[in-house]
Amino acid sequence: MDWPVSVALAQAVPTLPVGTDLHYEPKFDGHRLVMWRTEETVRLQTRAGRDVTRHWMDLALAGMQLPPGVVLDGEGVIYVGGRINFGAAQSRANSTPARARLLAEQHPATYAVFDVLHHPVHGDVRGWSYVRRRALLEQVLEEHGIEPPIQAVPTTTDVALAQVWYDVLQTQGVEGLMVKTGSSTYRGGSRQWRKVRHAETVDAEVVGYTGPAARPRHLAVRLPDGRTALSQALKAPLAAEMAQVLAGAPRPRRAWTAGGEPYSAVVTGTVVEVLSGTTRHAVVTVTRVR
């Protein structure tokens, strides 16, 4: 399997899906990280394919427990005061490597793993069903005595228990639930999973920006209804995070929103959360990058 791997994605749904062959997982509020255990070391990849090992060295060191050849998919999560803190994870991801080391000393990260993509014996297992991959994941963690900060997210087929998780775990910083079909394979780039979350946000695809790519002023986003709109003026942390994404994007072209505002159009493959109450307006409010 070649680096970087394209990760499976989720689409937001308003209510908890119910049906046969559905599996529910708490949705931990962190940064998506793929953990690659190579013959000599551990590398960590973002959803967009960037190498962020130096920002999450505490997790990279923990990953040395794994046998070479294992590739895992999960979330880098940080607890502050016993509660998951997305802001702390975002600060770690947007910091310099030197600053990230200091932050790791204050608040070590946890790797909430929910999938296995490659195994030293079975090779690429993305074509296996979710149920079979989940069993393999649990087997790897148990056989090799893998301990925190690497731990598997809980999973259940009991919709009543899933509803309890949804209602109760919010106080711990869990933002909702992920729903996966047991027979489904792992399809990178596909929104094959579903997510139900507490926040009043919707997902929007980043299709462009205004200003320089190194310091974007606004994002152009495609909303769920197909409209393209500009975001509010980006604050420095969000602008810096998007600058890293845009640095690897192809050359932009000139385009205009439905309201006539010009922007630099580019394919990013990046999704942001937008406050749902702002989607009726020409300017929408972006809360964070997913």
Rank of each mutant, 00 (worst) to 15 (best):
R37L: 10
L219D: 01
R54K: 15
Q106S: 14
I150Q: 12
T201M: 09
L103E: 06
R47W: 05
T20S: 14
R83A: 14
Y130D: 08
S231Y: 01
L230A: 07
P67I: 14
V113K: 04
E273V: 02
H55L: 15
G82F: 09
H198P: 05
L219A: 02
A160H: 01
T279E: 10
R134I: 07
D2H: 09
Q106P: 05
T155L: 04
A12Q: 15
D124N: 14
V113Y: 03
A258K: 01
T201I: 13
Q90W: 00
V13I: 12
W128I: 15
V7L: 14
A93M: 08
S183E: 11
A220F: 02
E40S: 13
T185I: 12
W128H: 15
V80G: 08
S183V: 15
W193P: 01
I146S: 05
F86Q: 08
G63E: 02
D51E: 06
R32G: 08
R215A: 15
Y111V: 03
V284M: 02
A89M: 11
R288F: 05
G269H: 05
D2L: 13
L238I: 05
P67N: 11
D51N: 12
R99Q: 09
H122C: 12
A112K: 03
V289Y: 02
G260I: 06
